[in-house]
Amino acid sequence: MNRSDNDKNRSTENGNFGDNPWRAMGLIGSVGGTIGACLGLGYWIGAKFDTGYGGIVGMAAGFVAAVIMTVFLIRTFTGGNAR
């Protein structure tokens, strides 16, 4: 197997994506799943209240939760260096 100079320059440190596409795809999938789950759960909980706006309020609360969870998720994937 012939390795090029680019292979030697790849960063393999924990918390750095380097050139690893699988790790980047994992982050994208996790972010999408987190947003979808928070919005769906927020709507479901909000729809349990029989007011006319329960689902919308629940989705808004779910969106806020999704943003917060996504920030923590990105910090975890980047080794705590997300700013």
Rank of each mutant, 00 (worst) to 15 (best):
N2H: 06
R3I: 06
D5W: 00
N6V: 05
N6W: 06
D7K: 02
D7S: 03
K8A: 10
N9E: 14
N9M: 14
T12L: 04
T12V: 08
T12A: 00
N14S: 00
F17M: 14
G18Y: 02
N20K: 08
R23Y: 09
R23M: 12
A24G: 01
A24C: 05
G26T: 06
L27D: 07
I28R: 00
S30K: 06
V31G: 02
V31P: 07
G32Y: 15
T34N: 14
T34Y: 07
G36M: 05
G36V: 00
G36N: 07
A37W: 06
G40M: 13
I45S: 14
K48V: 11
D50S: 11
D50W: 02
T51D: 13
T51M: 12
G52H: 02
G55I: 03
G55S: 09
I56L: 09
I56G: 01
M59Y: 10
M59H: 09
A60S: 08
A61V: 15
A61C: 13
G62I: 15
F63I: 09
F63G: 15
A65D: 09
A65P: 08
A66T: 13
A66Q: 11
V67K: 10
M69Y: 04
T70N: 14
L73H: 05
I74F: 09
R75C: 08
R75N: 14
F77P: 03
F77D: 07
T78Q: 07
T78V: 11
G79W: 00
G80F: 06
G80D: 04
G80I: 05
N81S: 15
N81P: 01
A82G: 00
